[in-house]
Deep mutational scan, measured.
Amino acid sequence: GKELVLALYDYQEKSPREVTMKKGDILTLLNSTNKDWWKVEVNDRQGFVPAAYVKKLDP
């Protein structure tokens, strides 16, 4: 199944490769191989958020 992450903080995108999220958002995790930036999908948009700003949810 899909892996989900919880947004721990608000994040405002600073480049087109990033996405904005609000604290409490549930996002689909697409790629977590980079320790600093994780690729997520939110509202049909894909992009990166700081890994420290999200937490993996237990399945």
Rank of each mutant, 00 (worst) to 15 (best):
G1D: 15
K2P: 04
K2H: 05
E3S: 08
E3A: 05
E3G: 05
E3L: 07
L4F: 13
L4S: 13
V5F: 07
L6T: 11
L6D: 02
A7W: 00
A7L: 00
A7D: 00
L8T: 10
L8C: 06
L8Q: 09
L8F: 03
L8G: 04
L8R: 10
Y9G: 15
Y9H: 06
Y9R: 15
D10H: 07
D10L: 00
D10C: 03
D10N: 07
Y11M: 01
Y11N: 01
Y11D: 01
Y11V: 01
Y11W: 13
Y11P: 01
Q12D: 13
Q12Y: 10
Q12G: 10
Q12M: 14
Q12A: 14
E13W: 04
E13C: 10
E13V: 06
E13N: 06
K14C: 11
K14V: 07
S15D: 07
S15P: 03
S15V: 04
S15R: 11
P16K: 15
P16S: 11
P16T: 14
R17Y: 07
R17I: 08
R17G: 12
E18I: 02
E18Y: 04
E18F: 03
E18M: 03
E18C: 05
E18Q: 09
V19Q: 03
V19N: 03
V19G: 02
T20F: 02
T20S: 08
T20R: 08
T20Y: 03
T20C: 06
T20G: 12
M21T: 04
M21K: 00
M21D: 01
M21C: 06
M21E: 00
M21N: 00
K22L: 11
K22Q: 15
K22N: 14
K23M: 06
K23S: 08
K23G: 05
K23F: 02
K23R: 09
K23L: 03
G24S: 03
G24E: 01
G24M: 03
G24W: 03
G24P: 01
D25V: 05
D25A: 11
D25C: 10
D25T: 11
D25M: 13
I26A: 05
I26R: 12
I26Y: 12
L27V: 11
L27C: 14
L27S: 03
L27Q: 01
T28A: 13
T28H: 05
L29Q: 01
L29M: 04
L29Y: 02
L29I: 05
L29R: 02
L30E: 05
L30Q: 11
N31T: 08
N31C: 13
N31L: 08
N31E: 14
N31V: 08
S32C: 11
S32E: 11
S32F: 04
S32R: 10
T33S: 10
T33L: 07
T33P: 04
T33F: 06
N34M: 11
N34G: 15
N34V: 06
N34R: 12
N34D: 13
N34E: 13
N34S: 11
N34F: 07
N34L: 09
K35D: 15
K35V: 09
K35A: 12
K35Q: 11
K35H: 13
K35C: 07
D36C: 12
D36E: 13
W37Y: 15
W37C: 04
W37L: 05
K39G: 06
K39Q: 11
K39E: 15
K39F: 11
K39Y: 09
V40D: 01
V40R: 00
V40H: 00
V40T: 02
E41G: 09
E41Q: 14
E41M: 14
E41V: 10
E41N: 06
E41S: 13
E41P: 00
V42I: 12
V42C: 13
N43F: 06
N43V: 08
D44T: 06
D44L: 08
D44Y: 06
R45N: 08
R45T: 09
R45S: 11
Q46W: 06
Q46Y: 05
Q46E: 14
G47Q: 02
G47W: 02
G47A: 04
F48N: 06
F48H: 06
F48P: 01
V49A: 08
P50H: 00
P50Y: 00
P50S: 01
P50T: 00
P50R: 02
P50L: 00
P50G: 00
A51I: 02
A51C: 05
A52S: 14
A52K: 14
A52R: 15
A52P: 11
Y53V: 09
Y53F: 15
Y53C: 13
V54L: 14
V54D: 00
V54S: 01
V54C: 10
K55S: 10
K55T: 14
K55R: 14
K55E: 14
K55A: 08
K55F: 03
K56A: 10
K56R: 13
K56N: 06
K56H: 13
K56V: 11
K56T: 09
L57V: 11
L57A: 08
D58G: 15
D58Y: 07
D58F: 09
P59G: 12
P59M: 03
P59S: 14
P59A: 09
P59H: 05
